Simulated scan of single mutants.
Amino acid sequence: MEFKDYYSILGVERGASEDEIRRAYRKLARKYHPDVSKESDAEVRMRDVNEAYDVLRDSEKRLAYDNLAAGVSPDGGFQPPPGWDEGFEFHRGAAPGDEAQFSEFFSSLFGGRGQRGGARQQDFRARGDDHHAAIEIDLEDALKGATRDISLRAMQMDDQGHPHMQTRTLNVRIPAGVREGQFIRLAGQGMPGYGGGESGDLYLEVRFKPHPHYRAEGRDLYMTLPVAPWEAALGAQVNAPTPGGTVEVSIPPGSGNGRKLRLRGRGIPGDPPGDLYLVLDLVLPPADSDAARDIYRKMQQDLPFNPRRHLGV
């Protein structure tokens, strides 16, 4: 994905004021508007100009974009780094048909075109905007449920109309069985309404912190289970940790590296609950003593085994 330098597109410095950004946009809009421009790429250029202006005129989006762009080179491919928006509130949402007007880069950051501007200047009653934020939780919270204090950063305007960052802490109930990518809705925790209207909602996108043993796919969990060569070859009963405690599992004879053993219902709770998959990982004993090396030499002599036979060598 191409990284888009919105400041360069508008031809302004990174510290440009709102007035400078507005003037640059109007100048470029007159130049590239498809109805008047004779440029062959006017439609594409106008889309980029609209996209850059949509971000840089909005104090929330601009701050999020600046945080992301710091240290990012525009050369080569680009993907938003994991967790770039963790704990940061901003608007998402798109009007019907708006998605096609913006690039993949914009959609990957903001999910569509935010609705901002003249609405709150008018004298009418309306519901407040929704806010979105990403949060990271421990996998154990998804397994058992928990109540956590979550700190979120959001852009606020002071009495003089100047933007500043404000941190607020919310007490959030995390339901057992929540999946990665799922949203927790906090009613009334979004932007205040207009003209006495009700407040918008806050949607928290759940992400799991890295776990030392498990990784999640939907409601299923995966864990690498080390096994000795003789346990895989001959079969064995071994202990394995699970979220519910240690269990004894059967290793079938002749198991190969990477074989999956399924433990039903031992994943993330739900209806139905997920499963736990144990992925076998054959671990060779180290040849760190004379006795161990003698055993390996005997295996080399007594076992007619060529692991490269399938390669024809």
Rank of each mutant, 00 (worst) to 15 (best):
D5K: 06
S8P: 00
V12L: 03
A16V: 08
K27L: 04
D35E: 13
D54H: 11
D58G: 01
R62Q: 07
A70W: 10
F88G: 07
E89F: 02
F90E: 04
G97E: 07
D98S: 12
F105N: 06
F105V: 12
F106P: 03
S107N: 06
F110V: 07
G111R: 08
G111V: 13
R120K: 15
R120V: 15
Q121P: 00
Q122Y: 08
D130C: 06
D130H: 15
H131R: 15
A134K: 12
I150H: 08
S151V: 15
L152N: 06
R153K: 14
R153I: 15
M155K: 02
D159H: 11
Q166A: 15
R168C: 00
P175K: 12
A176V: 10
G177M: 06
Q182D: 14
G190I: 04
Y194D: 11
R215E: 05
R219I: 12
D220A: 04
G235Y: 04
A236D: 09
Q237L: 02
N239S: 13
G245K: 04
S255E: 01
R259T: 14
Y277R: 02
Y277F: 11
V279Q: 14
L280S: 05
L282N: 10
P285H: 07
D288S: 14
D290T: 15
A292V: 12
D294G: 02
I295F: 09
P304W: 02
P304D: 12
P304Y: 04
P307S: 08
L311C: 04
V313W: 08
